[in-house]
């Protein structure tokens, strides 16, 4: 029985396939060309902050808001608001420690990331 059914179905399908065969081409044509990225700056979705082994902690009482750390952070994850250092985006911070080294008043401390995991 099954074999007979199976034998019958392909005939129907074949007829359908002829009709369906044309749509795949436009569908393929609507897909982006390989190797192209259309969303500018979409690497924001990739959180490099998971890499870090140390976390920069800023002492805002000592900070003189010179913004040197903002300029020298390779990940641009130190943000300023109204010409003042505002916060650090830890989801992108790779924990390199450049900000702590360039700070003229040494108000950034690198602390072990393990502390913040729990």
């Amino acid at each position: 029985m099954k074999k007979k059914k199976a034998g019958k179905k392909p005939e129907k399908v074949k007829i359908k396939k002829i009709k369906v065969k044309k749509p795949p081409q436009p569908e393929w044509k609507t897909k982006p060309i390989g190797g192209m990225i259309f969303e500018a700056g979409n690497s924001l979705k990739y959180l490099t902050g998971t890499w870090k082994t140390a976390r920069p902690i800023t002492n805002y009482d000592k900070c003189i808001h010179c913004l040197k750390c903002v300029v020298y952070c390779p990940e641009n994850c130190i943000k300023a608001k109204n010409d003042k250092k505002d916060h650090t985006e830890y989801q992108y911070c790779k924990g390199c420690g450049i900000c702590a080294q360039v700070c003229p008043v040494k108000c950034i401390k690198m602390e072990d990331e393990d502390k913040f995991q729990e």
Binding site: G41, L47, T48, W51, N76, C77, E89, G95, C96, G97
Partner: peptide
């Protein structure tokens, strides 16, 4: 240049 690029830390 957006954050999230994958160069080595530092």
């Amino acid at each position: 240049l957006a954050s999230g690029q994958k160069s080595c830390s530092g």
